[in-house]
Simulated assay, not measured.
Amino acid sequence: MSNGDSHAGFPGAVLIVDDCALYREALASALMSNGIGRVTTAWDLPSLMLALESAAFQVILFNMATGMGQRFLRAVSHVNPGVPLIAVATPEDDVEVISACAKAGVAAYHMRIDSLADLLVLIRVVALGKTWCPPQISATLLRRVSAVADTRRSPTRDSGLTTREIQVLRMLELGRSNQQIALDLSIAVHTVKNHVHNLLTKLGVNTRAEAAAAFHKLRADHGD
């Protein structure tokens, strides 16, 4: 997005939520050096709740690259749902993280390739009640919506399989390895192995090939 007047003063208060002290302190310093005079930081749930009780914020920034990002996001969306939220360092291909952001009502996404100047613009944009969704985030959300729609149309919705298990099944049918599935779905390999194990149990089969064949037959029987 355009940098615009990224160095103009910002009268509102900004809260940075990040469990990494180095990044949190560096970002706070950078924001204050660029015209944002009131910056508060939080690093865990107690400090986050204390900050929300102590002051009113115009914008809240979340580092979504850390393990606590989604948990912090859920907490704020429940406690203080009216404040504009910006997801910082958003992984563009992580469906679960992006879906969590969308569910929490994130107003804007700052990608890993975006600059400090971009973030300064976003802060001013969302403080005015506007939103910003980069094309790559929109594409990921559309894929998510499409996958959910396919699952709801599929006869496998009555088979006790989860949405993720059906996604894994589709990839097994294509002959994907655990590593390829993990990469495609942005999840860990051991998570894929757990899904495959659950699928074999639920479908009553012994091998990946049998699971793929059972899934293919199920869809064929229902004209899916």
Rank of each mutant, 00 (worst) to 15 (best):
G9L: 05
L15T: 15
R112H: 11
A102C: 02
K202Y: 08
S115F: 03
A107Y: 04
V145C: 03
G204S: 06
G105Y: 04
A220C: 11
M1R: 07
D118R: 04
D44M: 12
L172K: 00
L116Q: 01
G69Q: 00
N63A: 03
T162A: 09
H195I: 03
H222A: 13
A87M: 06
V168A: 15
L27S: 08
A209F: 05
A13I: 01
L45G: 04
N3M: 13
L161M: 10
M49S: 14
A55G: 02
G9S: 07
R38Y: 15
L200I: 05
A102H: 07
L27F: 09
L120P: 11
N80E: 09
S77F: 04
H110V: 00
E96Y: 13
E96G: 12
S6Y: 15
R144E: 13
R152F: 14
S54Y: 04
D93N: 14
A75S: 13
T41I: 11
E25C: 09
W43L: 08
V14M: 15
A188M: 01
L203D: 04
G204N: 05
D94R: 06
P155C: 03
T40N: 12
N194F: 07
L172A: 01
R176G: 07
A56C: 15
N206V: 09
S186H: 12
S99T: 14
A65P: 06
V59K: 11
C133A: 03
T41Q: 12
R164F: 02
A75Y: 00
L185C: 05
S186F: 07
L27H: 07
L15G: 13
Q136T: 12
R143M: 15
E25D: 15
H195K: 08
A188H: 02
R176C: 15
A42N: 13
L142R: 09
G105N: 03
T90G: 10
E25M: 07
H190W: 02
I98C: 10
C101I: 03
L85R: 09
P84E: 12
I113E: 11
V189Q: 14
S159A: 09
H190F: 10
N194H: 11
A212I: 00
P81K: 00
D114R: 01
A87K: 10
R176L: 14
N63D: 15
G82Q: 12
L174M: 04
P81A: 01
A102Q: 09
